[in-house]
Every structure is written in structure tokens, then in C-alpha cells.
Amino acid sequence: MSLTLYGQKLDSRLLIGSALYPSPEIMKQAIIASGSQVITLSLKRQNPAEKSGQKIWQYLQSIVKQVDGYLLPNTAGCKTAKEAVTLAKMSKEIFQTDWIKLEVIGDDYNLQPDPIELLNATEQLLNDGFKVLPYCTDDLVLCQRLYDLGCQVIMPWASPIGTGKGLMNPYNLETIRLRLPQATLILDAGIGKPSDACLAMEMGYDGVLLNSAIALADNPILMAKAFSQALQAGEQGYIAGIMEQRQTAHPSTPTLDTPFWHQQ
């Protein structure tokens, strides 16, 4: 169940968000239950004199330490390459990591990434030494371009952020896996239920990044466990080799000496 991101070996293939939980304590318990060692977070305008921002930051730090994990800052809210590059640099100074989950949004309605700004930002950040994990659409050519620029990790969406609609276009996602066998592929956004994550792993994806599906569950801690198990099941299914689909029925029970059989 190990995953390697930019040379960093991790025990879990699940990357988890830190937003939307009913309480900080439930967030903590859910992250621990998920087994994830990569926790996403963000930056926003706040006055440091208001201690709430410092408090949640200290709390997240303690969770990361407890799970022996890593922070993955995102560039949520950015709409241009310039904004994303600036936010990545600010994140690097605060979080002391060169990992960045690169989000550059092109449409407010479905929060769809802007592929042109994303490529532009990716190129700049890679040149600046960042290890870029780009959040992108399930477009093969875009993923190929990101890989060619030097992204070892690519994160196509399953469906728009926070929708829980699952894998909108399995064909596209399977094609990306098939055509980019060397890339580390993380399915990011739109996952709604554990079987979505399982399906991604059965396709040969390397991991899944999600937030809402766990945080908004009636019982986030139990859902975190469910996702952990779903990823394991999907990965093992992929490794075991899934049978070919067949067009017609084939009896599972041997037909030789079938009871009550009569020659027609």
C-alpha cells in the first residue's frame, strides 16, 4: 500500500483534505482513521492578531506530527498563473515544503481548472524548484503536457470539486492511465463514496485525494476507515488482475454430468 510522491515514500495511497469537518477533533480523528500521511491545507487573508488562524495551524502541525506525515499546501482560489505562483511561494515560506497542489481555476460555476494558466504556472514553479502536483481536468493531452514539463505527479479530477459525483468519465481516466504509465496519477476531486475510490484504484491509479466525501459524511471517522479499505481493495484488485468482460454468459458450475440432463 505504499505510494511514492517525488521520492517520498508513504504508507497510504490516500491524500486527505483538512476542511469542512464538523470540528477540529473530528478532523483529527478522521485523518488518523484514514491512514493518510498527506494533508492538504491552504492560505487566506487573516490578521495574525486574531489567534484563530494560529491555533488551527498549530493543531494541523500536531496532527501531521502524529501521523508522521506531510503538508500539501494548495493554491485554491487562484485564477491566474501569477496568482498561483505567488501563493505557492508564500506557502513555501510558511510550510517549509516545495510540494504544491497547484489549482488554477478557470470557471466559477464548476471550478474547472484553466489548462492554459495551469501549464504556465506549472512551468514557472518547476523552474523555481517546486515539486508540482497539478489539479487538472481529465484531458489526456493536458496531462501529457504536464508530464512533459516535468510533473512526476498528475491529479486529474473525477468530477468538479465538492460534487461527490464520482468518476464522470471513466474512459478518459483509463486512457490517461494507459497512455502515461510512468506518471504517478492521483485522482483528485469529485469523489463521493468509497466505491469511487476503489474504482480509481482498480484502473491502476496510484492514489486518491479527497476531502468532502469524508468531512461531510454523517460519521467522518467511519467514512475515513471505509475509504482506507476501499483503496486497499481497489489496489489489490488491480494487482490481482481483473478478468476480461465477456459478451455472453458462461456457467460457473461445471456442465459435465449436469443433473436431470436429457439429450434433446
Binding site: 492560505l43 495574525p48 501563493l87
Partner: peptide
């Protein structure tokens, strides 16, 4: 000037 602090994120 923008002054940014950590928050939870997905």
C-alpha cells in the same frame, strides 16, 4: 499588501 495565514483546505 496581502497578509496570509494557514487555514484548512482540500
Amino acid at each position: 499588501i496581502d497578509v496570509l495565514l494557514p487555514i484548512q483546505g482540500g
